[in-house]
Design a protein around this nucleic acid. Structure first.
Length: 128
DNA sequence: CTTCTGACA
DNA sequence: TGTCAGTA
């Protein structure tokens, strides 16, 4: 692991800072943690400490939500993303955008995973 | 003052 | 998801 990755993984921000950086409510941020989408560490006083990586994920989740995906859809994306990561280690490296495009198509073609009252019409498509 | 967990008129 | 309570 490079030093840069290590630093991005250091948990140092309290939830208040993450709220301002992501525009998400504390309720949402904690909920996504329950869904195992992020894994913040805890301080001595049991306070959550987030890393830059956690913030990036939160920002991505916000995008997926805006694109009309519900929790099931988002979890599906990350699940598939991990599967691809393993394959990529032995084969050709897949970029983050490739992963997004591939699963965006896959998910939408299946029709499901989109949020009920949202996107009554069509989705705009991934911003690549 | 900020964050945490649990709960729901 | 919002929000209120009672803490730490």
């Amino acid at each position: 692991m490079s030093e840069k990755e290590l630093r991005r993984s250091l948990s140092v921000f309290p939830i208040g800072t993450v709220m301002k950086l992501t525009d998400l409510t504390a309720r949402q941020i904690r909920y996504y943690e329950e869904q195992d989408l992020i894994h913040p560490e805890r301080s001595e006083g049991n306070r959550r400490l987030y890393s830059l990586n956690d913030i990036d994920v939160l920002l991505e989740i916000k995008d997926y939500l805006a694109e009309g995906l519900n929790m099931a859809g988002i979890k599906h994306v990350y699940k598939k993303q991990k599967e691809e990561e393993k394959k990529a280690k032995s084969k050709q490296p897949l970029t983050d955008k490739d992963v997004r495009r591939i699963f965006y198509d896959e998910i939408l073609s299946q029709g499901g995973l989109s949020q009920k009252s949202q996107n009554p019409f069509g989705m705009k498509g991934p911003q690549l």
